[in-house]
Amino acid sequence: MKTIITSVFTLISMSFAFAQTNIDLEYQIGNLNTSAVNQTGILNINYLDQKGNLNTAEIDQVGALNINYIETVGNNNSVDINQAGIGNNHKVTQLGNRNTAETTQAGTLNFTEQIQTGNRNDVSSEQSGKINTAFQSQTGASNVAWSIQDGNNNSISQLQLGDRNKGSGIQSGDGNVLTHEQNGDNNDAVNDQAGDNNIAASTQIGNYNITAGVQTGSGNEIYQNQTGNFNNAVDTQIGNGNYSLVNQTGDLQSHVGTQIGNNNLMTVNQSN
Rank of each mutant, 00 (worst) to 15 (best):
I59R: 01
Y47G: 05
D24F: 07
L65P: 00
N55K: 11
G63P: 02
Q83S: 04
D122G: 13
L95G: 13
V62Q: 05
G118D: 12
T108S: 03
G52R: 11
N38A: 02
L65W: 00
R120F: 13
L25M: 07
T40R: 08
N44V: 06
V37C: 01
T93A: 15
Q28P: 05
I86C: 02
I23E: 00
E71R: 15
I45Q: 09
N89C: 03
R98K: 13
A36V: 08
Q105S: 02
T104Y: 07
E26W: 02
G30V: 08
N31C: 14
Q61Y: 05
D24I: 14
L95I: 15
V123G: 08
A101H: 06
G30P: 03
V62C: 01
A57I: 15
N97P: 02
I67L: 10
A106P: 00
K91Q: 14
Q20F: 05
N53T: 15
S125L: 02
S124Y: 05
E126H: 01
G96C: 08
A101W: 04
G85R: 04
G87K: 06
N38P: 00
D60R: 12
L32H: 06
Q50A: 12
N121A: 03
N110A: 07
S124K: 08
V92H: 06
T56R: 13
S35G: 13
N89P: 00
D122W: 13
I59Q: 01
T40M: 09
S125Q: 02
Q105N: 03
E58W: 14
A36Q: 09
N88V: 05
T40E: 10
I115S: 05
E126M: 09
N97Y: 08
N97A: 05
F111E: 11
I29V: 15
Q94I: 11
Y47L: 03
T112S: 09
N77M: 10
A64L: 12
D24R: 05
N22Q: 01
V79I: 12
I81S: 04
T34Y: 09
